[in-house]
């Protein structure tokens, strides 16, 4: 399982990376926004994307839309982990095809639950 973590704050990337490691996912890479993340996704054979929303360069929502519009990437499961907490934003992300949405600040248990739920749905 190869996972890409996209967030402009290195500490948040590190937190997510550590939580994923505790969940048994050790093969992770990092990118600091959509502009650097998208080419990695296109080349890297990733199985899962965890992305923030508000980032300079290219936002997580734009990255989400770009992935869904890419023929080879469109089925990639995407978990959004963001401080954006407006209802209309969550709806926007859902309409753009996000697989899960975690609002910051979050707990390790929440992240675990959402990731497991996404994989359960894929398996089903």
């Amino acid at each position: 399982m190869k996972i890409l973590i996209v967030d402009d704050f290195s500490t948040m990337r590190r937190i997510i990376k550590n939580l994923l490691r505790d969940l048994g996912f050790t093969n992770t890479d990092e990118a600091d926004d959509g502009l650097t993340g998208l080419p990695m996704l296109q080349k890297g054979n990733y199985d899962f994307l965890v992305t923030d929303w508000n980032m300079p360069g290219m936002t997580g929502l734009d990255l989400l839309k770009a992935v869904r519009a890419d023929e080879r990437l469109k089925n990639l499961p995407i978990l959004m982990v963001t401080a954006e907490a407006k209802r209309e934003q969550i709806i926007e992300a859902a309409q753009a095809g996000v697989s899960g949405y975690v609002v910051k600040p979050f707990t390790a248990a929440t992240l675990k639950e959402k990731i497991e739920k996404i994989f359960e749905r894929i398996a089903a």
């Binding site: 407006k86 209802r87 969550i90 975690v102 979050f106």
Partner: peptide, 10 residues
């Protein structure tokens, strides 16, 4: 009210 207060509301 336009903003969720936590993960449960999400």
């Amino acid at each position: 009210v336009t903003v969720v207060s936590g993960q449960d509301e999400v």
